[in-house]
Design a protein around this nucleic acid. Sequence first.
RNA 1: GAGGGGGUAGCUCAGCCGGUAGAGCGCGGGACUGUGGAUCCCGAGGUCGCGGGUUCGAAUCCCGCCCCCCUCCCCA
Length: 438
Amino acid sequence: MYLKPPSGFRDFEPKDMILRKRVISALENIFLRYGYDPIETPVLEHWEVFEGKYGKEAETKLMYKFKDPWSDKWFALRFDLTVPMARFFSLKHPSLPFKRYHIGRVWRHERPQKGRYREFWQADADIVGSPYPEADAELLELSIDAMLKLGFKNFVIKLNDRRILRGIFEEKLALKNDIEIYRVIDKLDKIGYDGVRVELNKLGLNKRAVDKILEIISREYNVTDNINELIDEFSGNTNVEKGVSHILDIVNVLGFKRKYVTFSLNLVRGLDYYTGPVWEIVIKDIGIGSVAGGGRYDDLIEKYAGTSYPATGTSFGVERLIDAGKLTGIFKTDKITFTEIYVLSMSTKTFKISWEIARELRAKGFFVRVDLMRRSERKQREYASKKEIPILLIIGEKELSTNSVTIYVRKTGERLTIARDELIEFLRKLNKDLYYDK
RNA sequence: GAGGGGGUAGCUCAGCCGGUAGAGCGCGGGACUGUGGAUCCCGAGGUCGCGGGUUCGAAUCCCGCCCCCCUCCCCA
């Protein structure tokens, strides 16, 4: 029997899910604050929906693609949430700007390793309709808020615009099709300058060109002061001018939040569909990949809709955020149940009243368990302890006869008996001290 | 696609110069008869990844295969 999930796929225990739900609901809350509404799309799409959108490598090696044995048609599991959104938009044509968020699973047939899975969750926010920098800026500001809400401090948003490198390359090197080169440049942080040199040589570029590329990507520009030098150096090149001014506009909109943004000429990103600004969020000092990424893809929707719609979006990697949070110590899987209260019935005589108390508490919104296994008081106590349920309500014959309830607060060891009609109020006060994320 | 590590109870593993399986934790129950995640006792659960070979006998040796993890590649 194959009880284990396939490679790269995972089961989640309650303690894992509790943390995941916290992370996901924090992201969702931020999306809602910025006025994004949820959509959902099928996990399965016609193969033609994906074909030609991500690039050759992704489409030939990384996608779960299969022929449906009943219809003989080709289908694929979604590789990200952006392309399905583009299809959705083109089918429905909602009013502009269309702002949607989508949190869901995506599948990539990569070799699994730390922080890389074959089934993982993305949390996307996208805007269709606006070609303007303020749309990109909103996504960046939203991203900053999300990171702060999750509790991250040491993060930075790396920002670039693909048109800048394209402009520089066509100016200096007369290069046209540059996606392959972008991919190599994108690896700079990982493989270093020497590694990039080796990879560029493999692409068949001559030494002069390689040297020039290395010189360009080794430059350091700052988003707040000297990025304008690029416009001076390449004045007249519309790609460079558009790219630089777009970035300057974004940063200008961001105001004081620009402190989280840094300009990275070597940031490119792998997917084919990006056309302008691109960004990534990285967390410093933990050697993990980026936790989020995004950019503008003004040409994608036209492939479905026939007419062109500017669009931009950002995507958080849920497991990357969780892994990063665990590494930096801000996330812990220390909460193993959502249950707040265990109603312990001392004997069969008190079961009925215990059930009624549980019913009352549930009606008031508390998360309550009762004994369902006819266990002894001792075993109920052990169970509540092991599940780390913070409050025990003990109902014995004494309580039954005096119409009271004994409360045991695990955290403080406090134990007291109060009248039943004071119970709800007491628990509500306690609630503030003991819980979060309700 | 390449390299490394590993597959024995639900989990972490021990056993491995061959003699038909163990520990801790966890799980179920009991003692204990209301301030206790304690202590004690009992119990369930394993075709030792799969197949073949050597042998009187294999978790243990040999061969093949499968699966998982890590790294690279690739990609976010």
